[in-house]
Design a binder for these strands. Structure first.
Lengths: 341, 341
DNA sequence: TTGAAAGCGGTACCAC
DNA sequence: GTGGTACCGCTTTCAA
């Protein structure tokens, strides 16, 4: 059933039917009712392809997600981010076009989306420190929102979780428990979020008059194996950290394994806080996590990002939006480990 | 730059230009070259909205992914599956429309996609034992491929990883190492894959003349907390399992925590094999995982699913496709744990 | 308040 | 081999 047929069956013009269905004010209320009823009865759904052509809007938002060069896998935090964004899109009648490309082919993907008009805007995730995508998207004039920040001097809209504050807090928390030797297993420090986490870590350590040490810090792509090796080597040092901050749930799995390998127990022999996309625990003594930066925080950020991006699309010349999204940090019972130093 | 302008700039008709660009045979080679060159120069990209309307094809495949009722999160294995599918879509010039809806609202999503013609086909994931989606999609005539199987008697196309065989193998492996008491922390047994895994487990246990025990088996939504509680309770039993099969990477995190809580070491005090979407380890003595059912296996399945679905769309009345996709099981060094019983 | 008709930007049939 | 033109199904002027 298409508009034409529906109109004929009602003895009305396509114009009127279209107007009735789309809530235009100039339609007589009685007519609208009649049209609506008929549409429901016939399960009429306007053809989205036709509508998109006619309106010039794609009613679609693009997400370009890259697989990593090494593992060719997708970072699972995208799933949580998408969960949040997807809900908002559904509510606002936007479709989500997901483009999964190998790292390095993003530019092509964006250019294509812009050129063939399949999206009205794009979400940019995991920005690098100097990210070329921002200039690119400005150049091609595609509305976009960055989840995260870069050190670009250009002005653009972004929403970021508070990486610096979170890692600063987490490190202070450990120090206040008595730890003097903190390790950091960080993400790739060419990515902006990893730099900020590092900054938060450094800041807390310095504020408490402690020192960072190169052999207590690693940075790299956050695989399980990376976490394993990093923790294994760090913990094997004669002078080892007594607490470690881990920047990823996947790496954290490896960290746990490395600890188990030594016959050690997390929270007793070494403290661990993981962050990012994860459920994280300082102590293991019960069901209640002591320190949590949850997956739901990423989801919430995804939802808010979607809202902002849709606004940006609807009002293209509104000013840029900059939002710092608080990470939900839950500090529970202070049953954390005693310092071992 | 649109087709009309491009044609004018070349002094040709839209028809010819369109034909040249789309590789129709009746265009003179020289003309084609000229058109192609001009198109490249102008960075011409056909407007996808117009093309979709004209051809009647959406060149888009829909994935409806649900958030769980409890956690409102997306299962991270979808990310790996999507990574595989996405590559194929990109290669075949299909877009991926991702619809994220709360559990229970899938039907609406499918109906809408079908009615407004935004997709040419859909991928169905995580089928339940009696899944209503199959009848629905047949009714509305949308091509679809199921990743997994149901116990429906209808005939439909599916690709499944070999859940039964994998869990059977894994259980036998443990038994052959000397274990006599196996535990199973399974997914929700209203989902088909969980049932099959259970079947494989039961089968191996029975084949070796052992017994399953109700208090060594749990089933439920695969959260970290679920894994934690299941393992904690199981391991606290006076007569406890010496080895556990875990059906999910997320739950496995909780399992590891429960083991650490007891001051135990995985691979020494208890053996664990996790499956599904994960890197999994029987022993922890080195860098080389002993037993792996990798995330890349899910990715590979995603790619193959995409290929099949595209074929299905292109040849609508071809026979149904049924494929069992082997899970990559890597059995490495037999440095597994000694039985503790 | 309603309707006729001109797009939107391509594709594909039919004639030359 | 190339071009004219009627679609695809909707939105949106403009006129009545």
């Amino acid at each position: 059933m298409n508009l034409k047929e529906l109109a004929q069956s009602l003895g009305l013009s396509q114009t009127t039917v279209s107007r009735a269905l789309n809530g235009y004010p100039e339609v007589r209320e009685e007519t609208r009712q009649r049209v609506q009823a008929a549409a429901n009865r016939a399960h009429y759904q306007p053809n989205s392809r036709a509508r998109r052509l006619a309106t010039g809007r794609a009613m679609t938002i693009g997400h370009v997600v890259t697989t990593t060069r090494k593992t060719e896998m997708v970072n699972p935090i995208f799933a949580d981010f998408l969960a949040g964004a997807g809900e908002v899109y559904a509510r606002e009648d936007y479709d989500l076009l997901l483009s999964i490309v190998p790292a390095g082919q993003e530019e092509r993907a964006y250019r294509q989306m812009a050129a063939n008009g399949s999206v009205d805007g794009v979400m940019v995730q995991s920005p690098r420190q100097h990210d070329t995508r921002i200039a690119l998207l400005k150049e091609i004039g595609l509305p976009f929102l960055v989840h995260g920040r870069t050190s670009s001097s250009d002005s653009y809209s972004w929403l970021d979780v508070s990486n610096t504050a979170t890692f600063d807090q987490a490190a202070r928390f450990l120090i206040d428990l008595g730890h003097r030797k903190l390790g950091l297993i960080n993400g790739p420090e060419e990515l902006d979020f990893a730099l900020r986490r590092r900054a938060g870590f450094d800041q807390a350590v310095a504020a408490r008059g402690l020192q960072t040490r190169a052999d207590w810090m690693t940075q790299g792509e956050m695989t399980e194996d990376y976490g394993y090796r990093s923790a294994r080597d760090m913990l094997a040092l004669a002078d080892r950290p007594t607490a470690i901050l881990v920047s990823s749930i996947i790496s954290a799995i490896g960290v746990r394994r490395a600890i188990a390998d030594r016959g050690w127990t997390m929270g007793r022999d070494v403290s661990v806080i993981t962050h990012d996309d994860m459920l994280s625990y300082l102590s293991n003594d019960g069901d209640e996590p002591v320190f949590t930066a949850t997956r739901s925080s990423i989801k919430a950020a995804g939802g808010r990002c979607a809202e902002i991006l849709i606004d940006l699309i609807r009002t293209p010349d509104a000013p840029h939006v900059h939002e710092l999204w608080p990470t939900e940090l839950t500090l529970g019972r202070s049953t954390g480990p005693a310092p071992t130093s």
